[in-house]
Simulated scan of single mutants.
Amino acid sequence: MDETSLRVDRRGDRVIAMLSRPDARNAISQRMIDELHALCGELEDDPRTLILAGADGVFASGADIAELRSRGAADARRGINTHAFARIAALPMPVIAAVDGYALGGGAELAYAADIRIGTPRLRIGNPETGLGIIAAAGATWRLPAIVGEARAAEMLLTGRILDGAEAREWGLVSSLHDPADLLAAADALADRIAANDPLATRHTKTALHAAAHPAAELELQAELFESAEKERRMTDFLERRGR
């Protein structure tokens, strides 16, 4: 068993979690899932932006096939990866996936659970599950259509097509591409921009993005913000800078 599957760097306004199983190309094991749950618990109690990345030029090559092969129907119904990725998606503050190299199967589904995805030209992302006799059941069938559209999601999931970095950017699966050496710095720059904004407004914006009922959800969230001292302070500062 790995000593640890995540290397976690905790900073004041963000946490960087590096998937690290070098002997398995960062394949997602039960141990990694357990550690992701523990990290989610920490970020639910102390909300900060989360940056997810992979060590050694690979995000995550997929689920651990050796573990997956031995799982049966009861394991499928437990939704081992599904519940962990749903928890990541529901974190109070934004999640940024910095995706380099392979992000396949469960690795792709982990990236889909992020709010923002950035990549590199050598990115290879997709869901080859049907070639292994299973389906992508940890979020791809509902998150991927929301990201790239129904037609493109169907092509990826039904054919097992793997996108390279340029295709992923063209399809809107990642918002930008960076040299591998610059990828974490680009993720940090996004986290810096997030940190410059009001944390409560950021959290409410994320809630609104995931809300099932529009526009009622946005109006209630906005109502709370309209009464906040931070809104008053920031708008006063803005007006003073404009000389009004």
Results as ranks from 00 to 15, higher is better:
116 I>T: 14
107 G>T: 00
115 D>C: 13
105 G>N: 13
126 G>D: 05
116 I>Y: 09
129 E>V: 15
128 P>R: 14
105 G>V: 05
102 Y>I: 05
113 A>C: 13
118 I>T: 07
127 N>K: 01
119 G>N: 08
122 R>I: 13
107 G>R: 01
111 A>L: 07
117 R>I: 04
122 R>M: 14
124 R>F: 01
103 A>H: 04
126 G>Y: 12
103 A>Y: 00
127 N>C: 11
127 N>M: 05
103 A>E: 01
124 R>T: 03
101 G>N: 01
123 L>A: 01
109 E>T: 01
104 L>S: 02
125 I>L: 07
129 E>C: 13
106 G>V: 10
101 G>M: 01
108 A>L: 09
126 G>R: 14
120 T>R: 03
105 G>H: 13
122 R>H: 14
102 Y>W: 10
116 I>W: 07
110 L>H: 04
104 L>N: 00
123 L>H: 02
131 G>A: 12
114 A>I: 11
101 G>F: 02
123 L>G: 00
124 R>K: 13
130 T>R: 15
102 Y>H: 06
114 A>W: 11
105 G>A: 14
121 P>C: 06
123 L>P: 00
111 A>F: 11
104 L>I: 10
131 G>R: 13
107 G>K: 03
110 L>R: 07
121 P>V: 02
112 Y>I: 10
127 N>W: 05
106 G>T: 12
124 R>G: 08
103 A>Q: 02
126 G>H: 10
110 L>Q: 06
127 N>D: 12
118 I>M: 06
106 G>R: 14
107 G>C: 01
113 A>E: 10
106 G>A: 14
108 A>C: 13
110 L>K: 04
128 P>S: 13
118 I>G: 06
112 Y>L: 15
128 P>Q: 12
125 I>A: 11
129 E>F: 12
125 I>K: 03
116 I>Q: 08
110 L>A: 04
105 G>R: 04
108 A>T: 06
124 R>A: 09
106 G>H: 06
131 G>I: 05
122 R>D: 15
130 T>A: 15
113 A>M: 10
125 I>T: 08
106 G>P: 03
108 A>G: 07
126 G>W: 08
115 D>L: 13
124 R>Y: 04
124 R>D: 02
102 Y>E: 10
109 E>W: 04
102 Y>N: 03
129 E>I: 14
111 A>I: 03
127 N>L: 09
130 T>L: 15
107 G>Y: 02
112 Y>S: 05
101 G>T: 00
122 R>G: 14
113 A>L: 12
118 I>P: 02
109 E>Y: 04
106 G>S: 14
124 R>V: 00
123 L>I: 04
114 A>K: 09
105 G>M: 09
131 G>W: 11
109 E>S: 06
114 A>M: 13
105 G>D: 11
129 E>S: 14
121 P>L: 08
111 A>S: 12
129 E>T: 15
130 T>P: 11
110 L>C: 06
108 A>Y: 02
